[in-house]
Design a protein around this nucleic acid. Structure first.
Length: 916
RNA sequence: GCGAGAGUGGCGGAAUUGGUAGACGCACUGGAUUUAGGUUCCAGCGCCGUAAGGCGUGGGGGUUCGAGUCCCUUCUCUCGCACCA
């Protein structure tokens, strides 16, 4: 065997062995050495988009997954780790436009490319379960479940407001609208209403929320909170303001009621106006007779529908001239159109309470509307609360507002609170004042009171969600065809189940203007299943989030032709560990949960939460260098173009370009991105150091759930360690083979006992860290162990040989999940395979608790909490002995001299603290 | 603005959960081997100080015999959501 570490040869050999033995193919009936069933564990990484380029983020993700699999497998688990491709989506269409290649061809080539880049990493994927979501055998079941949902009313059709590019004749996603213009055409985007299919995820809102709160204890809190906020449940009252608004023909609007939703029923007596969304029917009605209002509304509708854009907009409004009746006071309340009112939330109308809502106040201030205070602090005596007009000057004009105070109070400073300091009533709820029968009521009581009081006119206590139904129609070619046939006579008709899948033609090349399916006669033309007349297929395709909502179940039932999933799914699911990026915290993970609940309701599966544990890995960043020109434009440099200079303490003081010798700015750590020349290519690292180094370094760089920095010299350090490990291992060849048969560990010398103590405490720590997925400290544990073993002189005696042999057998197995190839080689080379079997299924080393017990221990001595000395005592020494020894220590004596000892605290086995 | 998380050497980061702060690695410094460079090996390496010693986990306060860890307060950064009534 080559005595120098040659990762390429070692890795090729190990990988060939695993491939030839089908080592990664798992089944549902795996048993252990004793014939007992192994417990299952399903660990899965989020499926990648086949961009064609494998980057270090993928490497980190899959290595975490792989390390977990290998560790658990040694611990007796039957572990599944599959891989697949999120193969539909826009990048393929963009590439098609750019290169004139059909998306299918581009996508499939990329899959092969990426697969070949993954291969040298030695990842234990069970490729027999591979999925590409663009395969008809997969998306057939998207269509099938969609039809089922349609039957049950979970899927439905309605019109939606979208960003429409009038030149490209296509719908744009929010992120494709830049400054209100289409990203390709550069033409102003229109808001347009077009029909599409929706999934009623809101029907599952409560269940999804309940699951987040009570079931998903294995998820990071951050993600749980994000989902909770996304669902956005609020409890309040929905009620109506009756009105006598007339339509264009002068007729009263039928059933004249303006419905609003409020969580602050306690402020209803403070209503001084109502505001409706620009798209609201009342606004449309008023605009018909009011050109100025019409213009204003059109202005509001312009621009993207992105909520982020709306948020930064100034609050603007215009009166409709209409009035509604306050349901409690019968006062006439003016109706305004407000650009800050969302048509998509509640009824698209709000009651305006400027005294107790910041937005309403800003609006009222701008348009000089009345402000009326109706809430006071709960501790105030109700019968003495009074209100007066106050004034403020905002620089442009005078504004009046109410001041609430307690009459007869001498300390006016503390009690004379204005409405403004009381505005944040969400966190500090108060009591109703100036509210007639509601006076003294709190927030909760007011909701119940109002709901009951307004019941005759349609008022009710209501739970409102922020979550909206999931629109899945995309006016795109490269996606799952929606299995609908549009018939002039019958309307939209579902494709019969027997005709599934509706196959997407794969030879079309989009040109950027519209959906090429619309021009493909072969796809388009068909016969209506209902009336038999000629009809046309729906050309919209499904959102790609549909594809990723259940792929992890299909892995469990590969090649299931007759059903979406089969019994094998019940064995593996729910998934024990899901691993992926935080960027999917809301959408993907929420849709997948929803999809799972639907499948459960259809009786296809037995569980209702798909992912028991979720792990979100952090980003990889890299040190970067740049130079800035006069215009402020940055030029980024590759690390190998730069020479960094240091002071004599190793602090970087500057950097120069090798090219021209002039200084370059050290840019600190930034997320790896192509635009900043900070991309590290996995294949370059593997080429240079081998896969084991790439894997071990990516694990070593930092805690897997936090962002970590890539450093070339750091990777080199890991390579040095592996090389040392290999050289050391091979050098033990004879030693390990000729080990003594039986050793009584308690007969060892003091020094060797200390070595075993070190080995087993490191093993204990590493085992603990494997369990909590802290792989960075696992690697450092391996480094420590090698350091400890190298310090042992092995040639001397049989005991030293035995300890070394034990140590190396532990070290090889401990490092195996992280660096499987080098350990595979050494395991065999040193003859462990013969006694303990293949490393992959060899037993995880056991911590020898006896080795952790020490006869003599070190005790720290503190005086007043400061470390002053160290003593060595027998582990069974009494408290008194320790105390006496500690006080006799000269370092301690120096600090206790001449002072009275108040107290002595002894922490057994650790330290003693003398208080003087 | 709301929500979540994080601040520890020149750097990445440890600290078995209230008990030796800085493990392991990188960078740097000195030495040995070799010498053209690199590799490898040994030693040093938080800050101030010649030393004794003192100071140190973003700042301030508190609880405790003892705080990186717990509580209060404040600052900074990252991420997410963002007119949700």
């Amino acid at each position: 065997m080559d005595p120098t570490y040659q990762p390429k040869a070692i890795e090729a050999r190990a990988q060939a062995h695993w491939a030839n033995t089908g080592a990664y193919q798992v089944t549902e009936n795996a048993v252990d050495r004793h014939g007992k069933p192994r417990p299952k564990f399903y660990a899965c990484s989020m499926l990648p988009y086949p961009s064609g380029k494998l980057h270090m983020g993928h490497v980190r993700n899959y290595t975490i997954n792989d390390v977990m699999l290998r560790y658990l497998r040694m611990n007796g688990y039957n572990v599944l780790m599959p891989m697949g491709w999120d193969a539909f989506g826009m990048p393929a269409e963009n590439a098609a436009i750019a290169n004139n290649v059909p998306p299918a061809k581009w996508t499939r080539a990329n899959i092969n490319d990426m697969k070949s880049q993954m291969q040298p990493l030695g990842l234990a994927f069970d490729w027999s379960r591979e999925i590409a979501t663009c395969d008809p055998s997969y998306y057939k079941w998207n269509q099938w479940l969609f039809l089922k949902m349609l039957e049950k009313g979970i899927a439905y059709r309605k019109t939606q407001v979208v960003n429409w590019d009038p030149v490209d004749q296509t719908v744009l996603a929010n992120e494709q609208v830049i400054d209100g213009k289409g990203w390709r055409s550069g033409v102003a985007v229109e808001k347009r209403e077009i029909p599409g299919y929706y999934l009623a995820i809101t029907a599952y809102a409560e269940e999804l929320l309940e699951g987040v709160k009570t079931k998903l204890t294995g998820w990071p809190n951050q993600v749980r909170t994000m989902q909770e906020n996304w669902i956005g449940k609020s409890v309040g009252v929905r009620f109506a303001f009756p009105h006598n608004v007339k339509d264009a023909n002068g007729n009263l609007v039928q059933d004249g009621k303006l419905f609003v939703f409020t969580t602050r029923a306690d402020t209803i007596m403070g209503v001084t106006f109502c505001a409706v969304a620009p798209e609201h029917p009342l606004a449309t009605l008023a605009a018909a007779a009011n050109p100025a209002l019409h213009t204003f509304i059109e202005e509001c509708k312009k621009g993207g529908v992105a909520e982020a854009d709306m948020a930064t907009m100034e609050k603007k409004g215009m009166s409709t001239g209409q009035f509604v009746t306050h349901p409690l006071t019968n006062e006439q309340i003016p109706v305004w159109v407000g650009n800050y009112v969302l048509m998509t939330y509640g009824d698209g109308a709000v009651m305006g309470v400027p005294a107790h809502d910041e937005r309403d106040f800003a609006f009222a201030k701008k348009y000089s509307l009345v402000v009326k205070a109706v809430i006071a602090p709960p501790s105030w005596p109700l019968n003495r609360i009074e209100c007066m007009e106050g004034h403020s000057n905002d620089g442009t004009r005078e504004q009046t507002f109410p001041i609430v105070y307690v009459s007869g109070e001498t300390d006016t400073k503390s009690m004379n609170l204005s409405w403004w300091s009381w505005r944040d009533s969400h966190s500090q709820l108060g009591q109703c004042i100036n509210s007639g029968a509601m006076n003294g009521m709190g927030y909760e009581a007011a909701i119940d009171y109002l709901a009951a009081k307004l019941k005759p006119s349609g008022g009710e206590k209501k739970i409102q969600y922020r979550l909206r139904d999931w629109g899945i129609s995309r006016q795109r070619y490269w996606g799952t065809p929606i299995p609908i046939i549009n018939c002039d006579t019958c309307g939209p008709v579902p494709v019969p189940y027997a005709d599934l899948p509706v196959i997407l033609p794969e030879d079309l090349v989009p040109d950027g203007s519209g959906n090429p399916l619309k021009k493909d006669e072969g796809f388009l033309n068909c016969v209506c299943p209902k009336c038999g007349k000629p009809a046309q297929r729906e050309t919209d395709t499904m959102d790609t989030f549909v594809d990723s909502s259940w792929y992890f179940m299909r892995y469990c039932s590969p090649n299931s032709n007759m059903s979406m999933v089969d019994a094998r799914n019940d064995y593996w699911m729910p998934m024990d560990q899901y691993i992926g990026g935080i960027e999917h915290a809301v959408l993907h993970l929420l849709y997948a949960r929803f999809w799972t609940k639907v499948m459960k309701d259809f009786g296809l599966i037995k569980f209702d939460e798909p992912f028991t544990n979720l792990f979100t890995q952090g980003m990889l960043s890299k040190e970067c260098f740049y130079r800035q020109d006069e215009a402020g434009k940055k030029r980024w440099y590759y690390p190998n173009e730069i020479e960094v200079t240091y002071d004599d303490k190793g602090r970087p003081v500057g950097a120069i370009s090798k090219e021209d010798g002039n200084p370059v700015i050290l840019g600190g750590m930034e997320k790896m991105s192509k635009s900043k020349n900070k991309v590290v290519e996995p294949k370059d690292i593997i080429e240079k150091f081998g896969a084991d180094t790439a894997r071990a370094y990516v694990m070593f760089a930092g805690p897997p759930d936090q962002s970590a920095a890539w450093s070339d010299s750091g990777a080199e350090g890991v390579f040095r360690f592996l090389r040392r490990f290999y050289t050391f291992g091979l050098a033990q060849h004879e030693v390990v083979k000729n080990h003594p048969a039986k050793i009584e560990w308690n007969q060892l010398s003091r020094e060797l006992k200390a070595v075993r103590h070190t080995l087993h405490s490191i093993l204990k720590q590493a085992t603990h860290d494997y369990q909590r997925l802290q792989y960075n400290t696992v690697v450092s544990a391996a480094m420590k162990m090698l350091n400890a073993l190298e310090a042992v002189k092995t040639t001397a005696d049989a005991h030293a040989v035995a300890v070394t042999r034990e140590g190396i057998s532990i070290l090889i197995r401990m490092l195996y999940p992280v660096a499987p190839h080098i350990t595979f080689q050494l395991w065999e080379e040193l003859g462990f395979k013969a006694t303990l079997g293949e490393i992959m299924d060899s037993p995880w080393p056991k911590v020898d608790e006896a080795a952790l017990v020490q006869e003599e221990i070190q005790i720290m001595v503190q005086v007043n909490g400061k470390l002053r000395g160290q003593i060595s005592v027998r582990s069974d020494a009494s408290k008194e002995t320790i105390e006496a020894l500690a006080l006799a220590d000269e370092g301690v004596a120096k600090h206790t001299d001449g002072k009275a000892i108040k107290k002595v605290i002894v922490v057994p086995g650790k330290l003693i603290n003398v208080v003087v």
